[in-house]
């Protein structure tokens, strides 16, 4: 920290969110822009903290919903009360909405896959693409040691649990984990080279 120099005015602290929101209710566009910028920045952190698995696009999607809700409901803020609890309640509601929409989309996707499989000769997934992927994986597995290949086969292709895989391979779960890690590293290198060519 540098000591304050004489003759220079100390920096003016930015206006609080409450001051900006009061000005917003009065129709001050400049204050509103500042408020929206600050809310977007703060809420981005909140959304990422509450739902760290969301993609950056999904986070922006929620931020836009929060800003629209703020705009729509700006009269519902009481100038005598703090601003943050007000906006955080809105943000929580919009995160929940997003979760609901995501669940609905997933359910619809699964239902569509079911219908496609039940009433069509074609598989819902792209079969040709799956075959290419599987062939690439099989080719990449050729470079693995027998232990690594078995670990990958049991844990990733057959999707067994660590205990089940340990019983079948007569190994220990921790040895399997190490073997799987090595297998993945080797295969990643092979598949990445293949992808580039």
């Amino acid at each position: 920290m540098k000591p304050a120099q004489s003759g220079k005015t100390p920096p003016v602290p930015p206006p609080s969110l409450e001051v900006l929101m009061r000005a917003t209710q009065a129709g001050d566009q400049k204050a509103y822009r500042l408020l929206l910028d600050q809310v977007a920045r703060r809420m981005r952190g909140l959304v990422r903290h509450r739902a760290p698995w969301l993609s950056a696009e999904d986070v922006e999607d929620i931020i836009q919903d929060i800003l629209l809700s703020l705009h729509r409901a700006r009269a519902s803020w009481d100038p005598a009360r703090p601003f943050l609890p007000w906006i955080v309640t809105i943000a929580r509601s919009r995160i929940t909405d997003h979760g609901r929409r995501y669940m609905r989309r997933t359910a619809l996707h699964l239902a569509a896959s079911d219908i496609a499989e039940a009433f069509s000769d074609m598989r819902a997934d792209n079969t040709a693409q799956n075959v290419v992927n599987l062939l690439s994986v099989r080719r990449a597995m050729q470079d693995l040691s027998p232990t690594e290949r078995q670990a990958f086969d049991l844990l990733r292709l057959r999707e067994l649990s660590l205990d089940e895989a340990a019983q079948i391979s007569k190994s220990t779960p921790s040895a399997l984990k190490v073997a799987l890690h090595r297998a993945k590293r080797k295969m990643k290198a092979v598949l990445w080279t293949e992808d580039k060519t």
Partner: peptide, 20 residues
């Protein structure tokens, strides 16, 4: 960019409101 554009639109469309 869409978020920034939304902020521009909202701030330009602002009208004063009386608190409920």
């Amino acid at each position: 960019h869409a978020t920034s554009a939304l902020i521009d639109t909202l701030s330009q469309d602002l009208r004063p409101v009386a608190p409920l």
